[in-house]
Amino acid sequence: MKILVPVKRVADPDNANKVKVSDDGTKVTSDGLEWKMNPFDEWSLEAALRLTEDVSKKGMKGDDGKPLDRIGEVVLVSIGPKDAVQTIRQGLAMGAERGILVEAEDSSLDSHVVAQVLAAVAQKENPDIVFLGKQSADGDSNVAGTKLAEMLGWPLVNYATSIRTEPGSDTLTVTRALDGGVQTIEVKMPCVLTSTDRILHPESVKNGVTPEDHKYPESEGGRYASLKGIMAAKKKPLEETTLEALGVTPKRTEEYVKFALPPAREGKATVVESVDELVEKLHSEAKVL
């Protein structure tokens, strides 16, 4: 199985309160913040690694020196300036096989252009799955995955919470969380997936090879890169390409007009005496009922 995982670098989302709007309102600045892999992408990368490994052979190597626990291929792709290779290296250190950097200025991109680029890479790489984060922690658009599926004409399952498959099968059984419950979908590959954090649950991914009763550790994010992984990542292939080389003519569909911070909250609190009074106020004053 071959999985293409797009990874975006974002300003450290744990310090999102330090993001500022420039004085003229033309852009959002994140000066002084570290770049991190978009956490939503990290969840999908973790799921992709689980789909393509045999945990029972962890740490074992074949006669050719290749790790026996890897039974598929995960290819990372990032679109951004040269520095974005650091995000790809992190994913390689976590266990992905190789990386592709598509060089572009961050300011020249929107969800549509990202989907165009990913479609071109997918057509070149022919993966079984393109596995995206459902959104990025900076723009929070939640659009690129859906546009990509449309451009490729591939089936799409957004917000996956679990995935099950068998070796040699061309089908995935995916559950997704909806407001009203859980939906189970059988989807033929190639397909486009996005995930939620529930994909990190210890038993959310079953690939039919890793022992059925294996439980991954509880975690808020993807696996940590081990020191072995960090050293091995140095030797993994990393291809650099451009929009032109991929034959992409970028067609932006979004233009940002102006950025402004939300107005400061007033912080007014009203103490009510009874539930009846609360309902009345929610209806007549807050107008939310």
Binding site: R89, Q90, A93, S226, K234
Partner: peptide
């Protein structure tokens, strides 16, 4: 770069 990644990890 390995030291940088080590620190991050």
């Amino acid at each position: 770069d390995e030291h940088r990644q080590l620190r991050e990890m």
